[in-house]
């Protein structure tokens, strides 16, 4: 509590203390009254009950006082929350994309990451996008959460006020690996952030891509979350491993018909764009989204280049 990690922590934690404080007071007060009545008016001590039917005054008292208290709690809950809806104009705008079961973050200059890296003391607006089912972006240390609903773009904003690494969870149940849909938020000093960004900027990335075969494809695979379901070390996850897949002979099923094929450029392209058509034996249909709108032909080619390096 009161870590000060974001601009919302203090106001939110104040509301927690207000509500929990009032609640504990009444919980103890009412419980103590009940226990006292049970002892005081036990039939052994108090053999004849007084036939009281009620009291209008008391009914009014114990309606009006709680009414005032809940209105106070409502007000502070709303007041603590309302800034969450109004992002400052000069905020850093990052596109956060969720898919089953990974995250990616796209910065205004086109840099993409799978970890959210933000500068200290700077307002950040996240455009929340889901490409498949409902997810929810939750950073407990920041006291912030908002659903990522396919077909619409929700927004959230916050200011990271303390450098450090914080957990980022998916809070809305989204299927098999929901509990592994986890990444981190890193809050960096402005200078550190600028250095990091300079390294990750496009020109640098292209330079790396030129130097190592498949490096561009590897980055695409990381930022598009492919590794949540496909391993590169041969282990079986939700989807087939990428290791040695290029050029391999595999058994696939198309509309219930099984056949053997060799994995080539055309097959990989089809599996990325229409993943539910040819299903590799031993795996389930309906696990993967089409990446038709996420990856263009050139990027798919880079991915194929990377896969062919995984022997």
């Amino acid at each position: 509590m009161y870590s000060g990690a974001s601009n919302l922590v203090t106001t939110t934690d104040n509301v927690f203390f207000l509500i929990i404080g009032i609640s504990v007071f009444f919980l103890i007060g009412i419980s103590a009254t009940i226990i006292w009545f049970i002892i005081r008016y036990n039939n052994k001590k108090h053999p004849v009950a007084e036939q009281i039917h009620g009291s209008l005054t008391l009914e009014i008292v114990w309606t009006v006082i709680p009414l005032i208290l809940v209105l106070i709690m409502f007000f502070y809950g709303w007041a603590g929350y309302s800034p969450v809806r109004d992002a400052p104009k000069d905020a850093l705008n990052i596109e956060a994309t969720a898919r089953m079961w990974s995250w990616s973050f796209k910065y205004p200059n086109g840099v993409q990451t799978d970890t959210l890296i933000i500068p200290l003391n700077k307002a950040v607006v996240l455009d929340l996008i889901s490409i498949d089912v409902v997810h929810s972006l939750y950073i407990p240390a920041f006291r912030i959460k908002e659903d990522m609903v396919p077909g619409r773009t929700n927004k959230m904003w916050f200011i990271g006020q303390k450098t450090g690494t914080y957990e980022l969870f998916c809070a809305e149940y989204c299927g098999l690996s929901h509990s592994y849909m986890f990444t981190e938020v890193k809050v960096l000093e402005q200078q550190e952030y600028d250095n990091w960004m300079a390294q990750r900027s496009d020109t640098a990335a292209q330079a790396v891509a030129m130097a190592v075969p498949g490096a561009a494809g590897r980055r695409l695979i990381e930022v598009n979350g492919c590794l949540a379901c496909h391993s590169t070390d041969g282990s079986k996850l939700i989807g087939p491993t990428f290791k040695g897949v290029y050029g391999q002979t595999i058994t696939i099923s198309t509309d219930g018909q099984t056949r053997q094929i060799t994995v080539d450029d055309a097959y990989i392209t089809k599996s990325i764009y229409e993943p539910d058509v040819d299903i590799v034996e031993g795996y389930r249909k309906g696990q993967m989204q089409s990446y038709k709108n996420q990856l263009n032909d050139q990027q798919v080619q880079q991915i194929i280049e990377y896969l062919s390096t995984l022997k």
Binding site: L8, T11, T12, V15, F16, I19, I20, I22, S23, V70, M73, F74, Y76, G77, W78, A79, G80, Y81, S82, V84, S136, Y138, P140, R143, I144, K145, E146, A171, E172
Partner: peptide
Amino acid sequence: LVVGSLATDIHVHDT
């Protein structure tokens, strides 16, 4: 009351 209040629900919702 904690989950009915906006500021606090944002933190504890779906937890």
